[in-house]
Computed example of a mutant assay.
Amino acid sequence: MQLETYISDLLYRYDCVTVPGFGAFLTNRVSAKVHESTHTFYPPKKILSFNEQLHNNDGLLANYIAEIEKIPYGTATDKISKQVKSIKSYLVEGETIQFENIGELILNADGKILFDPANQINYLTDAFGLSHFTSSNVKREVYKETVSAVEATTPIAFTPEKRSNNNWLKYAATAVILLGLSGFGAASYYNNTIENHNQLAQEQANEQLDAKVQEATFVISNPLPAATLSIDKQSGNYHIVAGAFRVESNSDKKVSQLKAKGYKARKIGTNRYGLHEVVYASFENRADAQRELYKIRSEHNRDAWLLIKKLD
């Protein structure tokens, strides 16, 4: 049993994952930050820690293993207990325990477990797809020197009075700002106008369609046979995940259950852990996906989450 795989899966959704009889892995959200010397921007993330004192069984890990492996809860608890005994024996012998995507565990001279978290993975789903980047330092003095060099070679004569009066620079900067603000306002107004126009046109088209349907109801004497409609295949890179399953037949069952509830559920393949992922639906843009995610969390599944992934 790959215990670290199950712990890693749960850390995406929960802030505390307890391994009964061993300890708890905790996550703490930290905000985005900028390194002052390297000018590197880091996205928000969850940092990992380990607390040896929190070792009482809360049922989370055992229930998850029982669900994934389709075994009784008691059997899952026994498997965890055997794995913990093995881990502790290795630690006592002075070995380092490596949990993939989680970190390293080692026993110190006082018999306490030391934890060194891994940094290659971010368990904060809100920051999915974000990575750190470095920006070059802005050196304004360079531009001042460049302006001075241009002025020295320009054929226009600058008198001392004009050189000492920088009001024209202030006026120019103010004009640029005003033009930028007016352009932004005009663009916003244009976009809002287009959106209102499209909405109005859609409402008018719907009214015309309703009128034609009512007219056709009275004119056509013989009912037409039922038409077979083909549903377009879902597309988009924003997916609301319902769950991931080790056994593919369980993922098929989940898709059927969600479709029975009216969702456009489907499978989108396997993740890096070999689990079959099932989604409620897929969307072209993030805003629509986020709205549907809030609705699903409040009405059906509070553990649903948004996956941004380009499908082949």
Score class of each variant (00 low, 15 high):
Gln2Val: 11
Glu4Asn: 08
Leu10Met: 06
Arg13His: 05
Gly21Lys: 10
Phe22Cys: 05
Leu26Asn: 10
Lys33Asp: 08
Tyr42Ser: 09
Pro44Gly: 03
Leu54Lys: 13
Asn57Ile: 09
Ala62Asn: 08
Tyr64Pro: 06
Pro72Lys: 08
Gly74Lys: 15
Gly74Glu: 15
Ala76Glu: 12
Ser81Thr: 05
Lys88His: 11
Ile97Glu: 02
Asn101His: 11
Leu105Tyr: 14
Ile106Pro: 01
Asn108Gly: 08
Asn108Val: 12
Pro117Cys: 07
Pro117Ala: 02
Ala118Cys: 10
Asp126His: 07
Ala127Asn: 08
Ser131Val: 15
Ser135Val: 12
Asn137Tyr: 10
Glu141Thr: 14
Val142Asp: 04
Glu151Ser: 01
Ala152Ile: 03
Ala157Cys: 11
Asn166Phe: 00
Leu169Trp: 07
Val176Arg: 07
Gly183Cys: 12
Ser188Tyr: 12
Thr193Cys: 05
Glu195Phe: 03
Gln208Gly: 06
Thr217Phe: 09
Val219Arg: 15
Ala226Gln: 01
Ala227Asn: 13
Ala227Leu: 06
Ser230Thr: 06
His239Asp: 05
His239Arg: 03
Val247Pro: 03
Lys253Asn: 14
Gln257Met: 10
Ala265Asn: 00
Tyr273Leu: 11
Gly274Thr: 13
Ala281Lys: 02
Gln290Thr: 03
Lys295Val: 14
Ile296Glu: 01
Ala304Met: 03
Lys309Ser: 04
Lys309Tyr: 08
